[in-house]
């Protein structure tokens, strides 16, 4: 990309990689939590709902600091990961973890709405035909909520792509490893004469965010039109 200098291109590609990994890893637990909230009533449900939303409410720096305490080289899980040569602190995988944690609540909220839009009576009908919970989920609920699901994934990707506070707190800014696009942008703003670079990255960020949210909005609209 001739119009984007090398280190900015690296930051963009890293951000795309981090956001994709974050969304992919957040997806299975988010699907599980969203399904629980949409389809089951249980004691402690308000507690789970609140806990899931925490990353959305807490200052991102706090989330980053907690991640550092737990997954850092001196953290409980971080030490175990170090021993297995799987350290994630100050690595791109750590940036993906931070972005995944921050995108997780958004993903759960979107998936829950998608699952709740599926008529429960169809799931009941499937049960009377002998289908177990897995078959009902993968054969009925998931295909019927697919558009909402993809829209949720697009939003979560956009959120992960823009992650800054928790990431810089947890994995700092290491060029080519953890210096994602928002962090590179911030550093350019701090550097004398970095305005033109900052402007370029701003455009890139706006385009990626717009593409993801516009895609999500189009899918939601098509899902609404498809409803009988």
């Amino acid at each position: 990309m001739a119009w984007l200098p090398y280190d900015e291109t690296i930051a963009l590609l890293l951000s795309l990689k981090v956001a994709a990994a974050a969304t992919l890893c957040a997806l299975p637990p988010a699907v599980g939590c969203a399904w629980l909230l949409a389809r089951r009533r249980f004691i402690g449900m308000p507690l789970l709902e609140t806990a899931l939303l925490l990353p959305l409410i807490l200052p991102p720096v706090v989330t980053g600091y907690v991640l550092l305490q737990v997954f850092g080289h001196r953290g409980a899980i971080g030490r175990a990961l170090d021993a297995l040569h799987l350290a994630i602190a100050f690595r791109w995988t750590g940036a993906a973890l931070a972005a995944g944690v921050m995108a997780f609540p958004l993903l759960v909220v979107a998936l829950r709405a998608a699952f709740e839009s599926v008529d429960r009576k169809l799931e009941q009908a499937a049960a009377t035909l002998g289908a177990n919970a897995w078959r009902i989920f993968f054969g009925i609920t998931l295909p019927l909520s697919l558009r909402g699901l993809v829209a949720g994934i697009a939003l979560a990707f956009a959120r992960a792509f823009g992650e800054f506070g928790a990431t810089i707190t947890f994995v700092s800014s290491i060029p080519g490893e953890t210096r994602t696009l928002p962090i590179a942008l911030y550093e350019l703003l701090e550097t004398p004469g970095g305005e033109s670079g900052a402007l370029r990255l701003t455009w890139v960020a706006v385009i990626v965010a717009l593409a993801a949210t516009l895609g999500a909005a189009l899918l939601r609209q098509r899902a609404r039109e498809a409803e009988p």
Binding site: Q124, A125, A127, T128, L129, G130, A131, N132
Partner: peptide
């Protein structure tokens, strides 16, 4: 359970 009742509804 519903799925094991083998009733055509």
């Amino acid at each position: 359970p519903v799925a094991q009742r083998k009733l055509g509804v």
